[in-house]
């Protein structure tokens, strides 16, 4: 049974100018212990999906439809009280700005203990030793837990935040741009560490990034998002070898490669659409080189073109890179 099944999730932000269609009919599933990645430009709705899973959306956001089945329960329908028990105990998160996700006036260890004691009935001492364990796990000296956040370096804070996410041994960890602010070497080391820990404890992991290269390193499957839609979803190898959606192809070729033939880096014309008034039909059609009348008139559905390879496009490309 799948750990998480997101079915047709649709979410709007109410603004003065009207509803912003941030997430529209997103569906995907995750198995226990699986690592998937969500990729897309900023503003494509990937963070909104993550926040919807934890039900931490801003006041003006509204889940209009769809369901989020987690271990058989629909999170959309849970009461706030029940949802609080799910947060961190079952689904935890490593936030985009790890630098700022620790409260400056409390000791780092205390902030982790706080989370542990909220969900597990353990004594202060047990909680402390648990924190120390997790510090070791992410490669931090347990002595550091009695220091304040400003005494940590950027990489140390990131590790501490990851230790915090692991603290209650959740079933799923969402990592929203977990390493974007770090330099490349630290980034790589931390990603590797996360992956090892994940495999060891059989936790599912959802990576969110604008950087498909980072995602490819750690995720088993990749979902590509564009303007609130999942436009393509497949295992990592397929996405890289046989990208089918024109947007995925453009995204791939925007990255330089040191292997293979010299090629021109493709550039997408135009800009991401205004989600206040998304384009008719396929949301990608104004920028798509293969767009036809059909694309303008009718929205494509996510369909399986290969085993486990889903694409939402009227003209899926058959091209290997």
């Amino acid at each position: 049974m799948a750990l998480l099944t997101v079915q047709d999730l649709t979410m709007h932000y109410r603004t003065k100018l009207g509803g912003v269609h941030a997430v529209d009919g997103v569906s995907f599933a995750m198995a226990e212990g699986e690592a998937i990645g969500l990729v897309g430009e900023s503003g494509c709705g990937k963070t909104s999906v993550a926040m919807a899973l934890l039900r931490l959306l801003p006041d003006n956001a509204q889940i209009l439809g769809g369901e989020i089945l987690f271990e058989g329960r629909d999170l959309v329908k849970l009461s706030e009280h029940e949802m609080r028990k799910v947060r961190w105990r079952s689904i935890s998160m490593v936030f985009q700005a790890a630098m700022n996700s620790l409260n400056p006036v409390y000791r780092v260890g205390q902030q982790i203990i706080e989370a542990i004691q909220q969900h597990l009935s353990v004594s202060e001492r047990e909680a402390r030793s648990r924190v120390a364990e997790h510090y070791n796990l992410v490669g931090l000296d347990p002595k550091l837990m009695d220091r304040y956040p400003h005494e940590y370096s950027g990489g140390m804070k990131q590790r501490a935040v990851i230790a915090m996410a692991l603290a209650c041994s959740p079933k799923l960890i969402i990592a929203d741009e977990p390493t974007t602010a770090l330099d490349v070497i630290v980034q790589d080391r931390i990603l590797r560490r996360i992956n090892e820990v994940r495999a060891e404890f059989n936790m599912a992991m959802m990576y969110i990034s604008h950087d498909i290269a980072v995602i490819a390193e750690v995720a088993e499957r990749i979902g590509v998002m564009y303007a609130g839609w999942i436009v393509e979803m497949a295992d990592t190898v397929s996405v890289f070898k046989h990208p089918a959606h024109p947007y995925t192809i453009a995204l791939m070729s925007a990255f330089p490669s040191i292997k293979g033939d010299k090629r021109v880096l493709a550039q997408l014309p135009g800009e991401p659409p205004n989600l206040l008034a998304p384009p008719s039909g396929c949301r990608f059609h104004p920028r798509c080189p293969h767009a036809t009348a059909e694309c303008v008139d009718e929205a494509p559905r996510l369909e399986e073109i290969d085993k486990g390879h889903f694409v939402s496009c009227w003209h899926p490309q058959r091209r290997s890179q």
Binding site: R87, F95, N103, Q118
Partner: peptide
């Protein structure tokens, strides 16, 4: 508006704890 308030909420802390212990203290 700080990120650590979102973190505190994500940790599943009750609203009152987030408000009093995390926001008001700072």
């Amino acid at each position: 508006r700080e990120d650590y308030i979102t973190t505190a909420k994500a940790k599943g802390l009750p609203d009152k704890v987030v408000r009093d212990r995390h926001a008001a203290r700072t």
